[in-house]
Amino acid sequence: MQIGTIDSIWRYPVKGMRGEEIPHTYTSFTGLMGDRIHGVIAADGTPGHPWHTGRDQEEFVLYKARYKAGEELLLPPNLDASYSEWEPGIDPIYPDADAFKVSVETDKGVIYDDIEDSAFIADLEKLTGRSLRIHTTQKGNFDARPVSIFSISAAAKLGEELGMDIDKRRFRANFYVEWEDQEDPFYENSLVGKTLKIGEWLEVIIVGRDPRCSMITLDPDTAEESPKLLQHLARNHAGDAGVFAAVLQRGRVSKGDRIILK
């Protein structure tokens, strides 16, 4: 049964920085290729969550990270062969590490050609007063689960409840979806424990609701803080918005793909 459609696909080359909308993606057990590959670790961060993010420096959500390799990072080069040569499918080979290099543009328009440039960290340390370093992995730095899903209807309903425009990008999801069920704007909450097929290949299980922190209070275009959003979620929605998924079957996903309840 079709229950929805992929409205848009997003990944975040650097954890905490602005995301990028992409037309299609390869999603593996470790999430979307190219998602949260880089992160900035703070020496004074907590052992469990040492990341420097918008929680520490609001304007960090305005920083733009771009893969220098561009389209090369949308799908693994041998994706089709990895599906067809062996059952049940072999994990395709990701591009070499150099392909994951990103340039960064700050909220002030300063551009660093490579996030690994020592000048980037030096300037960020000077700005924030923190001791920082870049951490890079080709398979993603996630807080909780590799895939996050959030509906357009949930964003609209929250905006209606709060009497303000709620930009879906505040929720930093991978898949924004349109549900067929227009009666329940938070339909994703009813899917916990259910398996979904997205597009031709990808299968995920919805493993839980997404507990939110102050990151969602930051406007993705201005970094201004709206504490009422998080307060409202806590008082009316158990603090959650959107759901997490774990991947059961890897696959390609494109904007507009159907979502089937298995």
Binding site: H49, R55, P211, R212, C213, S214, T217, P227, L230, Q231, L233, A234, R235, G239
Partner: peptide, 16 residues
């Protein structure tokens, strides 16, 4: 009082 809160452990920031 229905004061906004969630984790109550100083992590989430809901009670700012």
């Amino acid at each position: 009082i229905d004061a906004p809160h969630n984790c109550q452990e100083g992590r989430c920031g809901t009670c700012k």
